[in-house]
Amino acid sequence: MSLKVFHIVFVIVTTILSLFVALWGIREFAQQKSTGGLALGLVFLAAAIALMVYGKRVYAKLKEIP
C-alpha cells in the first residue's frame, strides 16, 4: 500500500473516530449534563466535517501525483 492510499485510509479512520467522539460528547451532555463533554463533541463534529471535505479534496489532488 502506498502513502497515497494509506493517507486516504487514515483520513477515513480519523473521520470515523471524530464522529464517535462527537456522539460520545453529545451523549455525555444528555446523560450527565457535562458541558465539557458537549464542547468536546462539538469540536470533534466540526473536525469530522472538515476531514470529510479535506478527504474529498486530497483524494482528487493525490490522483494527480505520479
Partner: peptide, 13 residues
C-alpha cells in the same frame, strides 16, 4: 510517512 501514519493511527485509537 507510512510509519508516521501508523503512529498517528495508534494515537487515534
Amino acid at each position: 510517512g507510512l510509519y508516521w501514519h501508523f503512529v498517528d493511527l495508534v494515537w487515534i485509537f
